[in-house]
């Protein structure tokens, strides 16, 4: 059971990573949701034992390779968000989809906040309002994304 969900988890993470790295025109790129963060959040809430903080850390490390100037930056931010999601997974899971989307929005905002703080500490004051757009699109895409990710599992349960 856990082994099977690990395969699904790994595959969905790779697809999410590919979606994150997919070249898009600039106007669309700004609004691109953080697919990998959403995927990690989904698994942390719905299968906290198969992924957990380790998933957050390694997914963040891959994000660092793809788009981080600093190795470990996204890893830390995603570890924090994952830990909170794993800790509170039962409470989040029992909420209706709309409230879940709001929680995900808060999680994405805090994720971005950690990144901004680290950027500031390491002397990269690259501030742009564009970086705050993706939490909104991420929250919007959460209900369908969760439905897609939970498709097979939901049928069995």
């Amino acid at each position: 059971m856990i082994a099977e969900s690990r395969v699904r988890l790994f595959l969905s993470a790779v697809v999410a990573l590919a979606l994150t790295a997919l070249p898009l025109p600039p106007w669309l790129d700004v609004a691109r949701p953080a697919f990998l963060v959403l995927t990690v959040l989904y698994w942390s809430i719905n299968a906290p034992r198969s992924g957990g903080v380790a998933l957050g850390f390694f997914a963040g490390l891959m994000l660092d390779v793809f788009q981080g100037p600093l190795l470990g930056e996204h890893a830390l931010a995603l570890s924090i968000v994952t830990y909170i999601a794993v800790r509170e997974h039962q409470r989040i899971r029992s909420k209706p989809a709309l409230q879940q989307a709001l929680i995900v929005f808060a999680a994405l905002i805090s994720y971005e906040l950690v990144l901004v703080i680290i950027d500031g500490w390491t002397g990269r004051p690259v501030s742009s309002y564009a970086r705050w757009i993706h939490p909104f699109t991420g929250a919007l895409i959460w209900p369908p994304a969760a439905a897609i990710l939970g498709y097979g599992a939901g049928r069995r349960a």
Binding site: G52, A54, L71, E73, A75, V86, T122
Partner: peptide, 21 residues
């Protein structure tokens, strides 16, 4: 526990960042 693992990975990321910086 996730708390222990979280502490571990958080420290690991901070060390990574420090070394990379």
């Amino acid at each position: 526990s996730p708390g222990f693992k979280f502490t571990l990975y958080a420290v690991l990321s901070v060390v990574t960042m420090y070394l990379d910086q």
